[in-house]
Design a protein around this nucleic acid. Structure first.
Lengths: 223, 223
DNA sequence: TGTCGGCATGTTGTCAACAATGTGTTGACC
DNA sequence: GGTCAACACATTGTTGACAACATGCCGACA
């Protein structure tokens, strides 16, 4: 019955601006609206996003710490990060390490329900491959790895892994787009899950690392 | 001969304020001036550090992303992070992983000069143990690990390792302070270096992980 | 006496103006 | 014709004031 506190303005959420701006900028970078190398002009971006320079600066600094944006130093402006080949290779190395760790952890901790969930996702990806829907496979692949992180229940390494993945998305390569690559990749998924099911932590770890290194190999193959 | 551009004010470096504030706050947190749980009042801190709220906010957000400060959400302020036991344990896990990787890399890449440098540091720490200078050992230990990161030449994982170490320093425990612990720790150092010298990547990796896990064990032993 | 609603205060979030610096251009001098 | 220096502009860095929100207190009511 109370007439809804005040609702003076039609702000639909009344949250802080900076996090919203950060999310929007991040999306614009990852979907290519702001391509690597693009100069990020504070006033222009603030106008474009309908805010002022304050929150926008905070957002840019946040993205800088995420590795999506680089600053050339004081008074020299920021730009969308352009990933060097060396950096991308190192990113694969770090992800491989964390994937191996996650798999080893899963081999020790996972429940039967968790295993069933992973199996279901692998089957899902098989279906996507047969259907030739590379886009669906791409998303399901991200979901599969996300599920592993959740099930492993190790917040610290999961956070590191997620930040590395986000960074790697700077170059939106779809190296998995070929059917052959997708088949290879999902076969590795299945092998990882099987090792986890067998509670073989060492093998699971080795396969987890090998899977990401397989991605690196597929990336190098596509140059 | 040029009369030094202008030098209108005695600012000795003319750099941006936010990074300086970040460094100072970080130091204050790590040396205990701002203990875990301490509330961080923007205006009060700004006055204390002789700046305004703008740069100080940026610094706080930077420290938040480093994991040294936590925010309770909009309008609820920030505080120095208090590390839960679970979080500290996970930190050890992640560091162990990266230490193992670094050692494996060193086994493949290190030069004779690099090996000599590591040997010298291990000997240095032996001396510190005999001299009973725990403080010196503490610093030399950090330097030793820093040297390994430099020699391994893997920027991405080195960055991750450094950030994890910084985070772990939130609880300034000196678990190595006992002579027995220091001896154990340095024996592990020597074993790691020996495996690297033997170019045995697998063993080096295993020992690297074991070393940090040894630290975890020593931490658990000290409760 | 316990609980709930309204209010006052203090703190963070946002904004717009001011200051300082880096960059590109233009002109003179060699 | 090329190079260097001074200048003007554009952009970032900083500041103080204003607005919005969360917390705690106080009083009224059940």
């Amino acid at each position: 019955m109370l007439p809804a506190p005040v609702e003076h303005a039609p702000d639909r959420l009344a949250r802080a601006l900076a996090p919203q701006i950060t999310a929007r900028l991040e999306a614009m970078i990852l979907d290519g609206t702001l391509p690597p190398g693009e100069r990020l002009h504070e006033q222009a971006l603030a106008d474009r996003l309908g805010t002022s320079r304050g929150p926008l600066r905070e957002a840019l600094r946040a993205l800088e710490r995420e590795g999506l944006v680089v600053s050339g130093g004081a008074h020299r402006g920021m730009a969308v990060r352009r990933l060097e080949a060396q950096e991308e290779a190192e990113l694969y190395d770090a992800r491989a390490l964390l994937q191996g760790f996650t798999c080893a952890l899963l081999a020790e901790r996972i429940t039967d329900a968790g295993l069933a969930a992973l199996d279901a996702r692998v089957a899902e990806m098989d279906a996507a491959i047969e259907a030739g829907t590379a886009d669906a496979y791409y998303r399901q692949n991200l979901d599969f790895h996300e599920a592993m992180l959740d099930l492993a229940g190790h917040a610290r390494t999961a956070g590191l892994y997620r930040s590395l993945v986000k960074e790697s998305l700077l170059t939106r390569r779809r190296t998995l787009a070929s059917t052959a690559n997708m088949r290879d990749s999902n076969a590795e998924h299945r092998a990882m899950v099987d090792a986890i099911r067998a509670r073989d932590a060492d093998t699971a770890r080795r396969l987890g690392e090998a899977h990401v290194k397989g991605g690196k190999r597929r990336w190098l193959g596509g140059l």
